[in-house]
Amino acid sequence: MTTMTVNDAISAALAEEMRNDPTVMIFGEGVATKRHDLLAEFGPARVRNTPLAEGIIAGTAAGAAATGLRPVVDLLFAPFLCYAMDEIVNSAGKLRYISGGQFKFPMVVLAMTGAGWGVGAQHNHNVESWFVHSPGLKIVMPSTPADFKGLMKSAIRDDNPVLVFADIALGYSTGEVPEDAEAIPLGKAAVRREGRDVTLVSYAKTVGTCMAAADTLATAGIDAEVIDLRSLKPLDEDAILRSVAKTGRLVVVHEASRLCGVGAEIAALVAEKAFANLRAPVLRLTGPDAPPPASFPLEQAFVPQADAVVAAVRSLVAEPATA
């Protein structure tokens, strides 16, 4: 085991995959400047800076992916994906299908998002559900360094376009990463904590929020299970349904806005497939329908906090379960 940050885990995954496969390369604005260790090891052909033009960066990745390379592009901050929307959604996401399966698009799009840096709504916007809604794409949003490394490796090896969103607040968080970390399959959730009374489903930084809430709830005798989705598409439906079958209660927690967010999908899934298991209404704790603000207190208020998760659970679990 080594202790490393999320940022280092992403770099480690990139280096290992570039070592394994000569067709893997990375480019983006400042990529060669910032990832100088990759540049030193793999050279300027495979580690490139680009002009400031997100659309052509993503389009170049799609064209390269369809004709034999495995590009990784760093588009910096999630709101900038709007400039690359056509290439990601209309080209990388659709041209396999449109062409009747003639092409595949093994590419990875990296972007940061989330509250924590006070940079405001044009750098921080959790847009992951837009892409979940677009066919042909896979979306990953891990919460631990080990998962970032393992899922990044899978994303690079996958034959489909994969978007990897990195929560800004997690970038410098540390965690244990196994030295010989294997790729973690896309579409498998992780049970972070087992419990009997309520299921907390989350991803990215709010997994930590749910873990903190579960600690508080435990002191009140409420036993919360915490599920970290890790992949938003494919979604690990089984993990969610299995847990709800056990607990009968579900709270979904994410930072992205509520309307048509991932939480809405999970609530609908449980209503369709596990209604009989439910002992209480499904609750969602999410960001509001507002652009994320810069001011620190407002930015924090945007994100569901542990005390709100505790209060939501307490509203569902009238009587703490007896052991």
Binding site: T23, M25, A45, R46, G55, I56, A58, G59, T60, A61, A62, G63, A64, A65, A66, T67, G68, L69, P71, D86, E87, N90, S91, L95, S99, F103
Partner: peptide, 23 residues
């Protein structure tokens, strides 16, 4: 690759060019 998004082919062409040089 053929795109009916006007300009889409221009955005993809650089990638195909890149793969020609890399491969």
């Amino acid at each position: 690759l053929t795109s009916t998004i006007v300009g889409g082919e221009l955005a993809l062409a650089t990638g195909v060019g890149l793969s020609r040089t890399m491969l």
